[in-house]
């Protein structure tokens, strides 16, 4: 479905050209959830921005990105709008800044429909309410007329997801969508993403530096380090039999109870996600995925 070949991202600056992504290649299947892991500055975000066509102005992109057989860099402006704008959508990290504070929720969720479809206002509203219900927001009618500041962080992130999926995108890019949320809400949002992935057959490219979340949510994992793919494989393979030294160190860097790094926050967190030293007797906390 998505095929990335030799993707290079460079930045022009006064000192010269600085390459941050060094020709990475990977592909995604329909309905796959691919986790993208890496430390800060490893090129995760630049990779997905290039796929979404949102790279900063001073960036130079090389290589080919193919979505459903169409190469994105060859598209005309108009095709770009229908393909890249409708088939790829994105959920951002910070729910506080990812919604426009001066626009009602309904308006924002409908924005993609306004741009990409010719639906009448009534149809748009019906579709928006349906989508708000799909992301499990209670009382969509009320939410529809609210402003972002009237909603909690978790609700906003759900609205963000609703706005992202309203046009039935083929690929949803989630750039650390749960980092800014507290643990309980994180679990709910992850559950929701998993559900949407199943029901809408939407591929998800999930960026995180939290290996616990990646392990729970994703089918496959790709480890990125300073612009190169270090390792790629299924979740089981990467977490149980990492071949590269870097991946092993990443996994070892996760705080765990056994190693004694147990602030209360970490404990509750890793109990919740059942990471590594998770005790299976506590089934109540186990998510459905």
């Amino acid at each position: 479905m998505l095929d990335v070949k030799d993707l290079v991202v460079c930045f022009r600056s006064k000192e010269g050209i600085h390459e941050v992504v060094h020709g990475i290649s990977f592909s995604m299947e329909d309905g796959e959830i691919l986790g993208l892991v890496g430390e800060s500055g490893s090129g995760k975000t630049q990779t997905v921005l290039a796929i979404a066509g949102l790279s900063p102005i001073n960036a130079v992109i090389g290589g080919t990105i193919t979505l459903n057989g169409q190469e994105l860099s060859l598209l005309s402006r108009h095709e770009m709008r229908t393909v890249q704008g409708r088939d790829i959508s994105m959920v951002f990290q910070e729910p506080m800044t990812s919604l426009n504070p001066t626009m009602r929720i309904g308006r924002q969720v409908e924005e993609a429909l306004r741009i990409h479809t010719k639906l009448s206002p009534e149809e748009r509203k019906a579709k928006a309410l349906q989508t708000l219900a799909d992301v499990e927001l209670p009382n969509p009618e009320a939410v529809y007329n609210k402003y972002p500041h009237e909603l909690s962080g978790g609700q906003r992130q759900r609205v963000m997801i609703a706005a992202a999926i309203i046009c039935d995108p083929k690929l949803l890019i989630a750039d650390e969508p749960t980092t800014a949320l507290d643990v309980t809400i994180q679990a709910q949002i992850l559950k929701l993403l998993k559900k949407l992935n199943k029901t809408m057959h939407m591929s998800i490219l999930f960026i995180s530096h939290d290996l616990g979340i990646i392990r729970r949510l994703c089918d496959n994992v790709m480890v990125l380090k300073s612009g190169d793919i270090v390792e790629r494989g299924s979740v089981d393979q990467i977490f149980n039999n990492p071949t590269e030294e870097y991946t092993k160190r990443l996994i070892a860097a996760i705080p765990s109870r056994k190693r004694g790094i147990t602030t209360d926050e970490h404990r509750s967190y890793y109990e919740y996600f059942g990471f590594l030293e998770y005790d299976d007797s506590d089934d109540e906390l186990e998510g459905p995925f």
Binding site: L54, Q84, S89, F92, E94, T97, I115, M160
Partner: peptide, 12 residues
């Protein structure tokens, strides 16, 4: 800001 980015992503 992210909401402008997402508007750009929708090709507004």
């Amino acid at each position: 800001l992210d909401y402008v980015k997402s508007a750009r992503l929708m090709r507004a």
